[in-house]
């Protein structure tokens, strides 16, 4: 059994002349809760739709549970649960009917899971699905997706439009799924606070390009901010590999750096600051800095950080941005 439930190789998709997903090499480890991050329009949904065989890649290939995505046999589809963006339901059915209808498509259906999730979201089984609130609809969709006990759960922006209580219920359900260690969840999200709670791996997609794919804690450890103070004039900055942001104030330079390592530290210390201090970043700040306005495609946080030569040097600070 492969250690990865999803593997893509140079997966690419154009819509007209626009490259939406660009040569994506992504691996999702079995048993992980994998947060798929990126701004709106970064290509997350298109990637997910290609994984499920709903959209054809322009180039490249992908496998899911060991099967080619473009040729998923029903036995493989049964092992995958997909929650589409927007929590669509058949509005004329009741909650109970939705469950029965959905169950008819599956050989394996665990009604107690359906009931558990429905109760967790406080849904009335006799309520019309069309009358449910957004959060309740999400609960119903989740119940229908979880009841077949899929090996791989793919949730496309499941928290979109949910209130805090429904979001928490969603996260609890996700944690519950991983009671079985061979279960994997891939979910896309904008809500960094939630990603921080439940994800153990993250991938960051930006303008269709994979910018990072690594354990969550590694992402945090490798996007760092430092404050350097100087007596008198601040020196010119040398080319610093992985520099994301630089701000200059009187006698002080603040730097955000990706893939920070011993070499970067040496470089910063060689400027001989009188004070050298790390400024801890929240996950959200790290994420925003990482996808900052400079938007280079050059840094890549890899699962194998011991290969620094894979990183390109993006040299000099844009002096215009330094007042």
């Amino acid at each position: 059994m492969s250690d990865y439930v999803i593997e893509t190789h140079g997966l690419t998709r154009y819509y007209g002349g626009k490259c939406v997903v660009d040569t994506l090499d992504l691996k999702v480890p079995r048993g992980s809760i994998f947060g798929f991050l990126g701004r709106n329009g970064a290509g997350k949904s298109t990637t997910i739709r290609m994984l499920l065989g709903l959209v054809e890649p322009t180039r490249g290939s992908a496998t899911i549970l060991g099967h080619d995505c473009q040729n998923l046999p029903p036995v493989a589809r049964e092992r995958i649960g997909y929650l589409a963006e927007g929590h669509h339901v058949y509005g004329w059915m009741t909650v109970g009917e939705c469950g029965r209808f959905q169950s008819s498509f599956y050989k394996h259906w665990n009604q107690s899971i359906f009931d558990g999730v429905v109760d967790h979201f406080n849904l009335d089984r006799k309520a019309k699905a069309g009358d449910l609130s957004r959060g309740q609809r999400a609960g119903l969709c989740l119940a229908m997706t979880m009841a077949p006990e899929p090996e791989l759960l793919i949730l496309d922006d499941p928290a979109l439009g949910l209130d805090p209580v429904a979001r928490r219920s969603l996260l609890q359900s996700m944690i519950y799924v991983t009671r079985r260690s061979d279960r994997t969840i891939l979910f896309s999200s904008h809500l960094l606070a939630e990603v921080e709670r439940v994800a153990d791996y993250v991938a960051v997609l930006d303008y269709g390009v994979l910018r990072a794919s690594c354990p969550l804690e590694m992402f945090r450890e490798r996007v760092r901010q430092f404050s350097l103070r100087f007596d008198g004039v601040t020196p010119q900055l040398p080319g610093i590999p992985g520099l994301l942001q630089a701000f200059r104030a009187a006698g002080e330079i603040s730097l955000t750096i990706a893939n920070y390592d011993a070499r970067s530290e040496e470089l910063l210390r060689s400027l001989q600051p009188v004070a050298f201090e790390e400024v801890p970043l929240s996950l959200e700040d790290a994420f925003i800095s990482y996808l900052g306005e400079r938007g280079e495609k050059s840094f890549f946080l890899d699962q194998a950080p011991e290969k620094p030569e894979a990183l390109e040097t993006v040299a000099v600070v844009d002096e215009e941005k330094l007042p």
Partner: peptide, 12 residues
């Protein structure tokens, strides 16, 4: 109790 959005990672 843990808070998210803090510079302190949850495990810490």
């Amino acid at each position: 109790s843990v808070v998210t959005g803090s510079p302190d990672p949850v495990y810490r």
